[in-house]
Protein backbone atom coordinates (compact mmCIF):
# COMPACT_ATOMS: atom_id res chain seq x y z
CA UNK A 1 0.00 0.00 0.00
CA UNK A 2 1.55 3.30 -0.96
CA UNK A 3 1.46 6.37 1.25
CA UNK A 4 -1.41 8.10 -0.62
CA UNK A 5 -3.71 5.11 -0.17
CA UNK A 6 -2.92 4.67 3.52
CA UNK A 7 -3.42 8.39 4.03
CA UNK A 8 -6.75 8.10 2.25
CA UNK A 9 -7.86 5.35 4.63
CA UNK A 10 -6.73 7.33 7.67
CA UNK A 11 -8.59 10.41 6.40
CA UNK A 12 -11.72 8.38 5.66
CA UNK A 13 -11.64 6.88 9.13
CA UNK A 14 -11.36 10.37 10.61
CA UNK A 15 -14.20 11.65 8.40
CA UNK A 16 -16.58 8.88 9.36
CA UNK A 17 -15.62 9.09 13.03
CA UNK A 18 -16.23 12.84 13.24
CA UNK A 19 -19.47 12.53 11.24
CA UNK A 20 -20.71 9.89 13.70
CA UNK A 21 -19.67 12.11 16.61
CA UNK A 22 -21.82 14.94 15.18
CA UNK A 23 -24.87 12.72 15.67
CA UNK A 24 -23.82 11.05 18.89
CA UNK A 25 -22.58 13.95 21.02
CA UNK A 26 -25.16 15.31 23.45
CA UNK A 27 -23.91 18.88 23.53
CA UNK A 28 -24.96 20.84 20.40
CA UNK A 29 -21.77 22.93 20.53
CA UNK A 30 -19.71 19.74 20.39
CA UNK A 31 -21.83 18.59 17.44
CA UNK A 32 -21.04 21.78 15.54
CA UNK A 33 -17.33 21.50 16.31
CA UNK A 34 -17.29 17.90 15.08
CA UNK A 35 -19.10 19.01 11.93
CA UNK A 36 -16.33 21.56 11.34
CA UNK A 37 -13.79 18.76 11.75
CA UNK A 38 -15.76 16.75 9.18
CA UNK A 39 -15.49 19.62 6.70
CA UNK A 40 -11.75 19.75 7.29
CA UNK A 41 -11.33 16.06 6.57
CA UNK A 42 -13.48 16.44 3.44
CA UNK A 43 -11.14 19.21 2.32
CA UNK A 44 -8.30 16.78 2.89
CA UNK A 45 -10.02 14.39 0.48
CA UNK A 46 -10.29 17.17 -2.10
CA UNK A 47 -6.57 17.84 -1.76
CA UNK A 48 -5.86 14.14 -2.25
CA UNK A 49 -7.88 14.39 -5.48
CA UNK A 50 -5.73 17.40 -6.49
CA UNK A 51 -8.74 19.73 -6.35
CA UNK A 52 -7.09 22.50 -4.34
CA UNK A 53 -9.54 25.22 -5.25
CA UNK A 54 -12.48 23.15 -4.09
CA UNK A 55 -10.66 22.36 -0.83
CA UNK A 56 -9.97 26.03 -0.10
CA UNK A 57 -13.49 27.12 -1.01
CA UNK A 58 -14.98 24.35 1.13
CA UNK A 59 -13.02 25.66 4.11
CA UNK A 60 -13.83 29.31 3.43
CA UNK A 61 -17.55 28.90 2.76
CA UNK A 62 -18.57 26.03 5.04
CA UNK A 63 -16.08 26.02 7.90
CA UNK A 64 -15.39 29.75 7.77
CA UNK A 65 -18.82 31.27 7.29
CA UNK A 66 -21.76 28.89 7.54
CA UNK A 67 -20.56 26.96 10.59
CA UNK A 68 -19.75 30.23 12.35
CA UNK A 69 -23.40 31.18 11.93
CA UNK A 70 -24.49 27.77 13.24
CA UNK A 71 -22.27 28.20 16.29
CA UNK A 72 -23.59 31.73 16.69
CA UNK A 73 -27.22 30.65 16.80
CA UNK A 74 -26.61 27.68 19.10
CA UNK A 75 -24.66 29.86 21.53
CA UNK A 76 -27.58 32.27 21.72
CA UNK A 77 -30.14 29.51 22.26
CA UNK A 78 -28.42 28.43 25.48
CA UNK A 79 -29.19 24.72 25.10
CA UNK A 80 -27.23 23.52 28.11
CA UNK A 81 -29.68 20.96 29.48
CA UNK A 82 -31.25 18.89 26.72
CA UNK A 83 -35.00 18.96 27.24
CA UNK A 84 -36.29 15.41 27.50
CA UNK A 85 -39.92 16.16 26.60
CA UNK A 86 -39.07 16.49 22.90
CA UNK A 87 -37.88 12.87 22.89
CA UNK A 88 -41.13 10.97 23.33
CA UNK A 89 -41.53 7.39 22.17
CA UNK A 90 -43.45 8.53 19.09
CA UNK A 91 -40.52 10.74 17.99
CA UNK A 92 -38.07 7.94 18.55
CA UNK A 93 -40.12 5.47 16.49
CA UNK A 94 -40.64 8.00 13.69
CA UNK A 95 -36.91 8.84 13.66
CA UNK A 96 -36.01 5.16 13.45
CA UNK A 97 -38.40 4.58 10.52
CA UNK A 98 -37.13 7.62 8.61
CA UNK A 99 -33.50 6.73 9.23
CA UNK A 100 -34.07 3.10 8.24
CA UNK A 101 -35.83 4.11 5.02
CA UNK A 102 -33.01 6.46 4.12
CA UNK A 103 -30.49 3.70 4.76
CA UNK A 104 -32.43 1.25 2.54
CA UNK A 105 -32.63 3.82 -0.27
CA UNK A 106 -28.92 4.63 -0.04
CA UNK A 107 -28.01 0.96 0.05
CA UNK A 108 -30.20 0.22 -2.98
CA UNK A 109 -28.73 3.12 -4.92
CA UNK A 110 -25.21 2.04 -4.00
CA UNK A 111 -25.91 -1.55 -5.12
CA UNK A 112 -27.23 -0.40 -8.52
CA UNK A 113 -24.54 2.17 -9.20
CA UNK A 114 -21.69 1.34 -11.57
CA UNK A 115 -18.33 2.82 -10.75
CA UNK A 116 -16.62 3.85 -14.02
CA UNK A 117 -13.19 2.40 -14.68
CA UNK A 118 -10.25 4.82 -14.47
CA UNK A 119 -8.51 5.26 -17.79
CA UNK A 120 -4.92 6.27 -17.00
CA UNK A 121 -4.34 7.38 -20.62
CA UNK A 122 -7.10 9.99 -20.62
CA UNK A 123 -6.83 11.02 -16.99
CA UNK A 124 -5.73 14.63 -16.52
CA UNK A 125 -4.37 15.22 -13.03
CA UNK A 126 -4.61 18.99 -13.49
CA UNK A 127 -8.39 18.97 -14.02
CA UNK A 128 -9.11 20.31 -10.53
CA UNK A 129 -6.72 23.26 -10.74
CA UNK A 130 -8.27 26.69 -10.66
CA UNK A 131 -7.30 27.65 -14.23
CA UNK A 132 -9.03 24.60 -15.72
CA UNK A 133 -12.03 25.06 -13.47
CA UNK A 134 -12.32 28.70 -14.56
CA UNK A 135 -12.13 27.78 -18.25
CA UNK A 136 -14.83 25.16 -17.74
CA UNK A 137 -17.14 27.47 -15.81
CA UNK A 138 -16.77 30.55 -17.98
CA UNK A 139 -16.73 28.85 -21.41
CA UNK A 140 -18.73 25.63 -21.41
CA UNK A 141 -21.10 26.34 -18.54
CA UNK A 142 -21.41 30.12 -18.67
CA UNK A 143 -25.21 30.28 -18.80
CA UNK A 144 -25.87 27.91 -15.86
CA UNK A 145 -23.18 29.73 -13.89
CA UNK A 146 -24.84 33.12 -14.44
CA UNK A 147 -28.27 31.67 -13.66
CA UNK A 148 -26.97 30.32 -10.35
CA UNK A 149 -25.57 33.74 -9.50
CA UNK A 150 -28.99 35.29 -10.16
CA UNK A 151 -30.59 32.65 -7.94
CA UNK A 152 -28.17 33.50 -5.15
CA UNK A 153 -28.85 37.22 -5.61
CA UNK A 154 -32.60 36.60 -5.32
CA UNK A 155 -32.06 34.59 -2.13
CA UNK A 156 -29.90 37.37 -0.70
CA UNK A 157 -32.43 40.09 -1.49
CA UNK A 158 -35.15 37.93 0.04
CA UNK A 159 -33.16 37.51 3.24
CA UNK A 160 -32.62 41.27 3.46
CA UNK A 161 -36.34 41.88 2.91
CA UNK A 162 -37.26 39.41 5.68
CA UNK A 163 -34.80 40.98 8.10
CA UNK A 164 -35.82 44.55 7.29
CA UNK A 165 -37.69 46.58 9.89
CA UNK A 166 -41.26 47.51 8.97
CA UNK A 167 -42.16 51.20 9.06
CA UNK A 168 -43.31 52.11 12.56
CA UNK A 169 -41.95 48.95 14.12
CA UNK A 170 -40.13 49.40 17.42
CA UNK A 171 -36.40 48.80 17.56
CA UNK A 172 -36.33 46.46 20.52
Amino acid sequence: MNSAVSFFYFLSFLTVLSAVMVVVSRNPIHSVLYLILTFFTLSGHYILLNAQFLAAVNIIVYAGAIMVLFLFVIMFLNMKQDNEESKTNLTKVAATIVGGTLFVILFGAYRKSVIPELDPQQFDSQIGMIENLGHLLFRDYLLPFELVSILLLVAMVGAVMLGKREIGERHF
Partner: peptide, 23 residues
Protein backbone atom coordinates in the same frame (compact mmCIF):
# COMPACT_ATOMS: atom_id res chain seq x y z
CA UNK B 1 -1.57 27.87 -6.82
CA UNK B 2 -4.31 28.82 -4.35
CA UNK B 3 -2.01 30.87 -2.07
CA UNK B 4 -4.26 33.82 -1.34
CA UNK B 5 -7.34 31.60 -0.93
CA UNK B 6 -5.42 29.59 1.64
CA UNK B 7 -4.64 32.75 3.61
CA UNK B 8 -8.26 33.81 3.34
CA UNK B 9 -9.44 30.43 4.60
CA UNK B 10 -7.11 30.55 7.58
CA UNK B 11 -8.26 34.08 8.39
CA UNK B 12 -11.86 32.87 8.22
CA UNK B 13 -11.02 30.19 10.79
CA UNK B 14 -9.41 32.67 13.17
CA UNK B 15 -12.78 33.46 14.71
CA UNK B 16 -13.21 29.95 16.13
CA UNK B 17 -10.55 30.39 18.79
CA UNK B 18 -12.36 33.45 20.11
CA UNK B 19 -15.86 31.96 19.84
CA UNK B 20 -15.01 28.64 21.46
CA UNK B 21 -13.08 30.31 24.26
CA UNK B 22 -15.79 32.90 24.88
CA UNK B 23 -18.54 30.30 25.02
Amino acid sequence: NIGILYVFGVVALGVYGIMVGGW
